[in-house]
Design a protein around this nucleic acid. Sequence first.
RNA 1: GCCCGAGUGGCGGAAUGGUAGACGCAGGGGAUUCAAAAUCCUCCGCCGCAAGGCGUGCGAGUUCGACUCUCGCCUCGGGCACCA
Length: 911
Amino acid sequence: MARYIPAEIERKWQDEWEADATFRACHDPARPKYYVLEMFPYPSGRIHMGHVRNYTMGDVVARFKSSCGFSVLHPMGWDAFGMPAENAAMERGGHPKDWTYGNIADMRAQMKPLGLSIDWSREFATCDPEYYGQQQAMFIDFLEAGLVYRKNAVVNWDPVDMTVLANEQVIEGKGWRSGAPVERRELTQWFFKISDFAEELLDALDGLENWPEKVKLMQRNWIGKSRGLQMAFGLADGPEGFDRIEVYTTRPDTLMGASFLGISPDHPLAKALEDGNPEVAAFCAECRRMGTSEEELETAEKKGFDTGLRVRHPFDPEWELPVYIANFILMDYGTGAIFGCPAHDQRDLDFARKYGLDVIDTFVALENGQPVGAEAFVPPKTEKVRWTKPFAWDEVASGEEAIDAAIRHCEAQGIGEGVTKFRLRDWGLSRQRYWGCPIPVVHCDACGVVPEKKENLPIELPYDEGGKPIDFSIPGNPLDRHPTWRDCACPSCGKPAKRETDTMDTFVDSSWYYARFTAPHAATPTDRAEAEYWMNVDQYIGGIEHAILHLLYSRFFARAMQITGHLPSKAIEPFDALFTQGMVTHEIYESKGLRKSRAKDGSEVEIAFDQYYLPEDVVIAEFGGERSAVLRSEMVADGLDPSNPQHVKDYLDVLDRSQIKITPSAKMSKSKKNVVDPVSIIESFGADTARWFVLSDSPPERDVEWTSAGAEAAHRHLGRVWRIANGIAEEMGQGGGVAAYESEGEGAASTGGDDLTLRRALHKTIHDVTMGIESFGFNTSVAKLYAFTNVLAKSTASLPARREAAMVMAQLMAPMTPHLAEEIWDMLGGAGLIARAPWPKADPALLVEDTVTLPIQINGKRRSELRVPKDMSAEEVEKLVLADDAVAKALDGGAPKKLIVVPGRIVNVVV
RNA sequence: GCCCGAGUGGCGGAAUGGUAGACGCAGGGGAUUCAAAAUCCUCCGCCGCAAGGCGUGCGAGUUCGACUCUCGCCUCGGGCACCA
């Protein structure tokens, strides 16, 4: 008996698609286009289930839209610059370029068997000089358009390795390799002027109707538009040149509750005080011994240093406030100085309690308003409160009203100015690293900073150094110590000059790749006609972790590219629709143990360790509802067969079952070894099973848990579908083969009885599956296909009706399990490739039911039901309801208090 | 710490404010088989013999009716500007 053999089927159809160039994107003005893009991968060398899920979702959309008549662009590339390549070179030797391209080749080879409808002719990697050369050209255009500038910014500095560290390389305030406490250090760096676009980037979010609300909200908060008051506090006894401190506040209404002034350790005044005061210097140095991440600053213990300086309150010259240097105040937000109002800000309150400062209430709750105790009183700004110290508004007013009045009052008094500020900072793109796109400028003693000539692009990364491979074991940036690469002629005056040795943040690479895919080998960054046809990305799919930075930077880049003529204005928002998919998770197998190690004094010690095991290395068995895991290798060593459930049970009976702990699912990660290799899944079950599984069960936006039972079930189901189709094909063979059915045409299935029942179910399925795909409800589409398979398997309809049903079902499955779908289409005599067949349409006449089951609720609980014609009037329904046994019993002779009839839906009797 | 999500049977989940638990997994029972695998049929939220009662993280509220809307909590996850 023939059976479903994915390995044969999948290879065969992938070859057919290749020969047919089915997925080659065609610039066809006669057809509407559809651009599907998944966030491109970092070439780590191995694909993981998260990739499979991401690309399968995109593939479903791409294949579906193609069937619907669109000219589809579905490309793939590699986000290939970044730290891991350099880290690998440091740890294992070799060159980042070789490592990266090797990984790309490996990953492409792992990805191809998935049968994705990708136009591989457009593939590129961001580390291709062809790509980053165009990026350099754009950088020069941006520079000329005033979108790039240089300024000082702080970095994490490892004083031992003498190198800049990424935030993730700072662990508990120490460098990951050297273990030395990290310092903040200022460097001159390149910045994109994204803050100029803050307002525009914020406003344009409203137009992104097909983006998730949560992503838009995160971006809104990130951009952080605020209206506040900028004002100055007069400084009585400041050092030379400091007679006032500029403060920005979003709560000018709480000015009367001010009890201290705080300035950033990086504030010019703090720096001036450092010079003459070792204590100040020590405190500031301590503050600088922290990483640069906001998270670290915010979670660190709040500390302040009383400078001894006093400022005068603007409303009362007699009222003096102390000036503190505080470690939680950021220099790059606002003016780097704040006034603290402890009563209405928790952080300020904690600070005030710690340093014994006043807590002055400026307002209390309307109802039983109490003075502030351990918790700051911070009601929503829209809530009315009772003011104890209003200075320009009524005693009862909301925070919002008070803020507006306070700003007007201060402006009128000449105390300050109402200003709008954004939290969004300019995008620092300089990286002091090798494996990135070189910034194409030259530093000339005579001419200053000069952009490289475009004809000299790309400025390629040097592969060797003085004829020898670059040594990555030395910390720091190899470009910085590479004389022949670094030394060059000034593009302007021709005198000896030095190249910029900073490379670009990898976010730059990923901020325009979507545009490059429209013309991947053009001699300019984009090709106008191609961009005009293909942009925008109609559906972008990726992880929620990119909700802010990558997506915001891409939106900025689209604007900058439009200004510099590289994108049409319609592409100002490059992604029409966004979908953020969840992760793939797996449970964790972990055992605690002891390991021998060497202590500092050289003696041998035993330390506890966590050992993790790969899912493929353990066998799971269940005892009375409790699941236990055992190592495969241990069973084999004891002469037992891990595939025999009885052996596993027997083995576990004599074993301490707590040896391997099964801990709940988490994102698949190498360190926890809770990973399932897509390659081995494809080898044992086939790509269609992997694809079907990642689409089923969980809604796409949520995490999906990989379970071997789930994968087996998916595989079983596909085998069942194959068998049903094969059975129909065999029946057809007995009845004269495909030709006999072709000639009979569509009328072959009869229009009544079992055939009609099957067709009704089929058309309902067409409708539901289509809706599911269109709304990213792939899991419900899968469920509807399961249900229809059950119907078809049990159907006693005529052979032509069942053939039609199986073929349409194959079409509905084609976006998800394309190989199996082609195979079924072929065995049932479908014409051409299913990938090129038009999407089936549901016949509305077959979707309507003439009678419905109306549930009857009594007091909101379902108690009975009624079978009535779909369009029966409410009055008639009421009569039937009152005659119902359950209703009569509940009414007990009385009349209902209320009777709600929702026609065609439900009835509720209130008694 | 700040910002954003998510919580439904033993498990993954379904459900335009209208029958909570579709579909799948696991589990029980049966058929087929010398036997097993595979396959097919069937049962399956919890408590209860039953009648019935209870059930969508917890606590309130709106509504004839709430998984769905509002408010307050709890737990878990994502982001926090040099991981990509």
